[in-house]
Simulated assay, not measured.
Amino acid sequence: MEAVTLSIPPTPGNSIAKRVDNQNLYTISCVFKDKGYQNLFFYGDDGYFDNMNAFFGVNNFDIYDRGRGSILSDKINTKRYTIKDDEVTFENTWGIADDDIYRKVLKVADEKYSTKQPFFASVMTTSNHKPYTYEAGKIDIPSGSGRQGAVKYADFAIGDFLQKAKQKPWFHNTVFIFIADHCASSAAKDAIDVKNHHIAAFIYNLPSHVNQNVTQEVSQIDIFPTLFSMLNWTYVSQFYGKDVFDKTYQPRSFVGTYIKLGMKKGQDVFILSDQKKGNQYIWNHKDLEEVKINPNFKKSIISNYQTADYLFSNHLLNEK
């Protein structure tokens, strides 16, 4: 959330989304706002969780969530809309089913289109989490039987969403981005398991660009700078992310957990940990093998994370 929205490496410790004084930051929403877009955030449960409502609310997003009990601060100048019970067909402890939240997105998109209001919608889905439950009959794997069913259901929901979107008058002028946060079994761990941070990302429905498979190493922070470049948009920012199609792009990726911070360039991996410890490894696509530290690589990772933290701590990431 921090990496995609702010286009910076994840800062040490708590995510910026959970910190105080995280309002009026220069996020991707500022780029959209300057282009005349309205920013929307959708979440299928109460956005009080992980401080999402507060973070998105103070950074140019209107909120769509279940609205149970929690309220936004009076200092937040945003609108909040409740996803009502009669709009939900299935719900578990994580929130409403993926196809329910996609249905809500389609409804709001129709409303915005009817008023000729361009919009950017950020949608957080939750069905691919334990207990892996979903409405019976959607796919051929029983609800609650495991991750394989949840993955297939998530895929079904995306396909159903796109099929319905294709019938809308706004489809031809809409770009869709799908991106994960991490793979399975990587959350809430101190250690960094590189293979569990190799995720999929798609930029879909840009007819002016040929379909292609990007095989070079990129990061979540690069997604929107790449899109903005593909749209030929100009803007001034402190984004760390780059256009991955630029000839000067240097492949690398960032991985962060609660304590450790990692940077990967090809097979080379450097991990910073508490007490100013640092270790360098070679990644063989299965395991990490520790090697001698390259001082330049060490400086590179420290400079990326430390400057990102410095900019936030000194209010230099704020919208001007």
Rank of each mutant, 00 (worst) to 15 (best):
S7C: 15
F120Q: 03
V88Q: 10
I203D: 05
K276R: 11
K286G: 07
M124G: 00
D21W: 10
F119D: 02
D222E: 08
D287H: 13
V244D: 07
H172G: 11
F41D: 04
G137M: 02
D268C: 05
F156K: 10
K107F: 12
Q163K: 15
E135V: 11
Q212S: 11
F312S: 04
T307D: 08
K286D: 10
V244C: 01
F161P: 07
L261P: 00
D274W: 07
D287Y: 13
L288G: 02
Q267P: 03
N196P: 01
V88G: 06
N211G: 15
W233Y: 10
E289L: 14
D243N: 15
A54W: 09
P10R: 13
D85W: 02
E217T: 06
A136Q: 12
S313V: 08
Q280W: 09
I96Q: 03
K33R: 12
N196R: 12
Y81W: 07
F171A: 06
E290T: 05
Q306G: 08
N232A: 15
S273T: 13
D155P: 02
A191D: 14
I177N: 02
Q117C: 01
D86A: 02
H182P: 04
I139R: 07
T78E: 07
A165I: 06
S186H: 05
G266N: 05
Y281H: 02
Q267K: 15
G47T: 12
A308T: 12
K75M: 10
A157C: 13
K33Q: 10
D98Y: 05
P10A: 14
K75A: 13
R252M: 13
S29K: 04
I158S: 07
D100Q: 07
A3C: 10
D287V: 11
K152R: 15
M124F: 15
Q212M: 13
Y132T: 00
V194P: 04
D155Q: 09
E289G: 01
G13A: 11
Y43T: 01
L162P: 01
L227A: 09
W170S: 08
F171Y: 15
I28K: 02
I8A: 02
L311M: 12
T78L: 07
A109S: 15
A188K: 15
T11G: 01
R103V: 00
